[in-house]
Design a protein around this nucleic acid. Sequence first.
DNA 1: TTATAAATGACAGCGGTGGTCAATTTGTAA
DNA 2: TTACAAATTGACCACCGCTGTCATTTATAA
Lengths: 344, 344
Amino acid sequence: MKVTINDVARLAGVSIKTVSRVMNNEPSVKKATQEKVSAAIAELNYQPNAAARNLAGTRSYSIGYIYDNPNAYYVIDMQRGLLEACRKHGYELLIHPTNAKSAQIVQEVIDLVQHARLAGLVLTPPFSEMPEIAEALERIGVDFVRIISGSTPSPKLTNCVLVDDFTAAFKITNHLLELGHTDIAFLCGDEEHSSSGERLAGFKAALTKRGISPNAKYIVPGSYSFESGVKGAKYLLELPHKPTAIFACNDEIAAGALFSARLSQVEIPQQLSIVGFENSPFSRQTWPPLTTAHQPNSTIAMQAAELLFRRSRPGQQQGLAAEQPVFIPELLVRDSTGACPGSS
Amino acid sequence: MKVTINDVARLAGVSIKTVSRVMNNEPSVKKATQEKVSAAIAELNYQPNAAARNLAGTRSYSIGYIYDNPNAYYVIDMQRGLLEACRKHGYELLIHPTNAKSAQIVQEVIDLVQHARLAGLVLTPPFSEMPEIAEALERIGVDFVRIISGSTPSPKLTNCVLVDDFTAAFKITNHLLELGHTDIAFLCGDEEHSSSGERLAGFKAALTKRGISPNAKYIVPGSYSFESGVKGAKYLLELPHKPTAIFACNDEIAAGALFSARLSQVEIPQQLSIVGFENSPFSRQTWPPLTTAHQPNSTIAMQAAELLFRRSRPGQQQGLAAEQPVFIPELLVRDSTGACPGSS
DNA sequence: TTATAAATGACAGCGGTGGTCAATTTGTAA
DNA sequence: TTACAAATTGACCACCGCTGTCATTTATAA
């Protein structure tokens, strides 16, 4: 019923210590022994007891995920990826929703880490972009991985998984350009999220590359919300010279823009193309469904967790400390974009 | 830095055994001692090591939350409530998203429980409505609490937190009736979710009480999705005798209905009132914002967890085994409902 | 064969709980 | 006030399942 390390040791005909060695893939275990033990583990469907490992070892077998994100779909996707990685490596996941704007947020994070004896922490925006958090964690010597918006690995961004919003936005913009659009507007997300800035930069770069200088009137500040999209699109559609396409900084904004366009009797995509970003369930619930960029959040999360695990393994830290995987969200063409009216 | 039970014992001037007794609130600890120890615990900000407790004790200090729900907001709310309760009582929460339709789902749940040595499980639909899960858990002697749709406590529904969809739907319907509507349609959710049936029953009961017999043509089968709302409303608005109000089984359906109405140039709420259910963030992102019923999911989750904790405490099981709190979602009037056109 | 490295095992201990029993304190009735 | 029972507390041990340390055995090279 309850399989312990002793059962495995007995079946494999070795000491429990050797089983432990195999599980932690320590060096200096003979290949043959290694295989015998692995077979026994598999046969018994043995899974080490996390509590015991946490208690006994200096290492920890739990990682934490701290978040404060109004987008529940994002959080759920992240959790899924982290859990999968944890399951694979026998770790536990501690989730910790909290308020990023709290005054004692740094202390709260420290308390959490110390109390739960975490092996490491996965940080997403806004935490991943708060220098005081990173500093505090470094000070107390707790490992962490940040998921942040960025295109190029750099020494400053150690321990990061990068999401290349710049390139993705560049590609999306190209998609619109290829459809013949030249008057393209951009609805920004919250300024304090670097993703919004990165996406805008990618947008501008794509235009510039085509010899189109971005029109300041078409760049509308806002926030990551439906309302913001409604307002932004309304403003744009009342402009004397309307854009023929709108790049919304995320799907929610795009949905708002779609809504606004519909109110103004503007046909999508015949008269106006709209793109979103993120590929949230939201983007499929609009009509027409949104062209968007797919962010593989679960995969990103898995990768982040794997990074943490790999680093917490003794004897392999060298060279891996600055590993920085880069994910580029992929263009997903659906029905909210079409040829520029008048072109062709 | 790391506070253990020994530190507490020393500060309080008692033995570690007594500290342990206080923490597990065993009987036969003098009030004064109890307070001394509690003070010491508070002063040191001591929190027992969950790993050690899990490992040593017969009891467990983790509960599990198994879910398979496409509505991320619901899941996040539940998690929040569970976490809060866990924090308060020094428990850990293990989250386990999975596929309810998997063939080996029962075995999977059993494995989870056994491997993680869980104190209990919190089940939401669809798991809470699967008799095979309840049977399996009872068989292996693991405690669990189900959150299900139901209005009246009954011996059959042991260990349940009830969400009274019936009464809530009754109230919503009354709201529409009071606005003068009599031709009210109902857009159903998935048949296999009992919540849909309960809501429909409440709807019918309210009508019947006013002497209105529910019109079968106005009761539209469907599922808990935006598309379903779009289709359902389209059907209704093409009827020779249109309804003046639509009761959608949840906010997503309502949003779809809203969308559909807008396509048909129907003014909301001047020509048609629409209500949703759940008070999801979704309901605030429509225009106009939806009248809906607020389901206090976090609170419900907390309550469920507390039930689990209380039962796992030794020596208090009697009489509590069949406790069944009932939550009634509350009517939240926003702008998608208005007086029946023509009335008054 | 012997020195040396590689592979394995014995054992203590992580921070608590559970149990037993003795010691101490408290309450209570005579 | 005393005596005795009951309530409270502590001392101590084993143990949960695993890892860290160090000693021991085995294989390999010289």
